[in-house]
Nucleic acid binder design. Structure first.
Length: 643
RNA sequence: GCCGAUGUAGCUCAGUUGGCCAGAGCUACUGAUUUGUAAUCAGUGGGUCGGGGGUUCGAAUCCCUCCAUCGGCUCCA
């Protein structure tokens, strides 16, 4: 007999060699039906695999992320089986589970897949699933595994096996399909009830651009058709928030063939968003003691040689233009310019911390395949600033920057994000990283402490720091689930040296400042792209391109409406008037579609009493209000953020 | 940059196997209507069918090429 310890601490005795599935059945049939996979002594484990010694046991169902991951991984195997059935001789790369679904990389040996083929593949998968074939675990020697896959002619698997440690290797099979796999898997294919293969894409073998490109097939599967339907519905809803779609509909930005890829044109509505964001940033930065500076869009090669950017980032910059025998580059970052501004006059410790801010315009040559709406562009404007400070001031400055981030997140109601804290690898000092072990330790500790003190959830990513210091990136997701860095906050103790920046200390020595790069609002492009999706186009009043629209019931009320429009404009409210001779229902519908926060209806009643009938977007008619009150309240609502 | 797909009016889309002046709805404009909380009616305008080249008596439709976009990969200071 062996002892099995459950997560709640209870211990029960079972026969030696029992399986997790048998244990589950002994507890209840319902539980046994629900579970997909388990953990035995912290090792993820198949339900039918025997246990030969006392152990702890944790069971996972579809509700757990371990359950879902296993389910999708097994689905990937099922897809591979279907592929092999339809296209004999295909070779397989890897087929893991994702956060949402799974994929398999395959070498179709010259065959191409069309979307129609995916439907065929789905059908085949469902057919194979309905056979309830068991996922069977099998341990074999490395030699036998190599022999099997070499005979099968699957060089990808052979490559993978060669990299595994010597000893036993596990294979999993279901039906006629055998795959190299660590496992575990769900009990049988019958658990997979609903399948949707979502897309086909190219993917380099092992993510290496120089190697064979395989076909990656993405899919997702569910235990119930209803779950799949819900998922597809959710995707449809997400698409409606897509900033590329809303940006066009709401006339915020556009791209034009003649202007060039990745270079957005901001329409007047987008212009308002930019103005408002800058207004917020400038106010916030003024209050925090920043100075505004300005720098040109072009700079000489020598500066980027000095900054050290050129050797590393030339590929990401537009090629140089030559004038008077000199090379000039479009600027891809603002830091060197700001360093030059720091260096323009002699600095004393009394000037520090010196905070230089600029909504700087940059140009980056992003690869053509990487462009993505407003989220990844070639011309961009950054909410940039550089803080020059002493080591003693660093902690306070970094903390203040962090508080600014949180203030913004609060204003915009941003709660779905992850802070990535990137640190260095001490083994790579002097190679990938500036060789100053003490400063690395000091600054990383300080950054970590600030995060902990502020109670901010974060993930620490070793060996991802910039060459000049640790950094924090704020990761967000677009409506279609792609991940982006929204904002960045970086410590820099290298550029000061490269530019020979210095300040005079109280004891009349010279010292080098530490530098903080920070961009809490990222770039206008990415931030507005994000905001469009975040608000689904329903901007708060202070941001809304058009804050209110006057809707006269009939032409009789036009003159009064026009008079009111002037009043709104005097109060700097962005207001329009719908002077078409349409019915009020139509005017309201159009205003709703334009997502204007306030619809102000004017009929006889309102005209007589100098009032407006207020209809707030989304909440319907809220009755007649004196016109001056409406103006005052909209004004107050849109200014509150700046006070 | 790589793999795959797509490109028809301002927007969303139809256009059968190549064949009369390329269509619809919405938008815009004009007129009628004068309307009370999500679509009044009628008329009109609007297209180098992404660009270029080719095959053909004839191309939106077939072929080549370039451009752009979309889904991924790679990259991301």
């Amino acid at each position: 007999m062996i002892d099995i310890t459950f997560p709640d601490g209870t211990v029960r005795q079972y026969e030696n060699g029992t399986t997790p599935m048998a244990i589950a059945k002994s507890i209840s049939e319902g539980l046994a039906k629900k579970i997909l996979v388990c953990k035995v002594n912290d090792q993820i484990w198949d339900l039918q695999r025997s246990i030969y010694s006392s152990a702890s046991l944790q069971l996972f169902s579809w509700e757990d992320k371990e359950g879902k991951a296993t389910y999708w991984h097994s689905s990937a195997h099922l897809m591979a089986e279907a592929l092999e059935a339809i296209y004999p001789g295909v070779k397989f790369g890897i087929g893991p589970a994702l956060d949402q679904g799974f994929y398999y990389d395959v070498d179709l040996r010259g065959n191409t897949l069309q979307n129609e083929d995916l439907v065929k593949l789905e059908k085949k998968m469902l057919e194979l699933a309905s056979r309830n074939n068991e996922y069977k675990r099998q341990e074999i020697s490395k030699e036998d595994a190599l022999l099997y896959f070499t005979e099968k002619g699957d060089e990808y698997k052979v490559e993978l096996i060669n990299e595994l440690e010597d000893g036993t290797i596990t294979l999993y099979s279901q039906g006629n399909f055998i795959d190299l796999c660590r496992g575990p898997h769900i009990p049988n294919t019958g658990y997979i009830k609903a399948i949707k293969l979502t897309s086909i894409a190219g993917a380099y073998w092992r993510g290496d651009q120089s190697r064979q490109q395989l076909t990656r097939i993405y899919g997702i599967s569910f235990p119930k058709q209803k779950d799949l339907d819900d998922y597809l519905l959710m995707l449809e809803e997400a698409k409606k928030r897509d900033h590329r779609k809303l940006g066009k509909e709401l006339e915020i930005f556009t791209f034009d063939d003649d202007v060039g890829p990745g270079m957005p044109l901001w329409l007047p509505n987008g212009g308002v968003l930019i103005e408002q964001l800058e207004r917020l940033a400038k106010k916030t930065e003024f209050d925090a003691g920043y100075h505004r500076v300005r720098s040109p869009h072009v700079a000489k090669e020598s500066m980027y040689l000095k900054s050290g950017h050129l050797p590393y980032y030339q590929d990401s910059m537009f090629p140089p233009m030559e004038i008077d025998g000199q090379k000039f580059y479009l600027k891809a970052m603002n830091c060197p310019h700001h360093h030059k501004i720091f260096d323009a006059v002699p600095r004393s410790y009394k000037d520090l911390p010196l905070r230089l801010a600029e909504y700087g315009t940059c140009y980056r040559y992003e690869q053509s395949g990487e462009l993505f709406g407003l989220m990844r562009v070639r011309s961009l404007q950054m909410n940039d600033a550089h803080i020059y400070c002493t080591r003693e001031q660093f902690g306070d400055e970094f903390r203040a920057v962090n508080e600014m981030y949180l203030k913004y997140f609060n204003i915009f109601g941003i709660d779905k994000y992850v802070m990535r804290f990137s640190t260095h690898d001490p083994a790579k000092l002097g190679q990938k990283y500036i060789d100053d072990a003490i400063l690395w330790k000091e600054t990383e500790d300080m950054v970590r402490n600030v995060l902990i003190e502020s109670n901010i959830p974060y993930v620490e990513v070793p060996d991802e720091a910039a060459f000049y210091g640790p950094k924090i990136d704020v990761q967000i997701w677009s409506a279609i689930g792609r991940e982006f860095t929204l904002a960045t906050n970086q410590v820099d103790f290298a550029q000061g040296k490269r530019f020979d920046l210095k300040f005079t200390t109280p004891t009349n020595d010279t010292q080098q400042p530490l530098i903080i790069h920070r961009a809490p609002l990222g770039t206008h492009e990415r931030f507005i792209g994000f905001l469009i999706e975040h608000y689904a186009g329903n901007f708060p009043t202070w941001l809304a391109p058009v804050q209110a629209t006057l809707l006269p019931i009939s032409d009789k009320h036009l003159d009064y409406a026009k008079k009111l429009l002037q009043e709104f404009k005097k109060s700097e409210i962005r207001c329009t008037i719908d002077d078409r001779s349409e019915k009020i229902g139509k005017k309201i519908r159009d205003a709703e579609l334009k997502k204007i926060p306030y619809m102000l209806i004017i009929g006889d009643k309102e005209q007589e009493s100098n009032a407006l009938s207020v209809r707030k977007k989304g909440s319907g008619d809220s009755g007649s209000v004196p016109a001056s009150d409406v103006i005052a309240s909209i004004k107050a609502e849109s200014d509150a953020i700046f006070n």
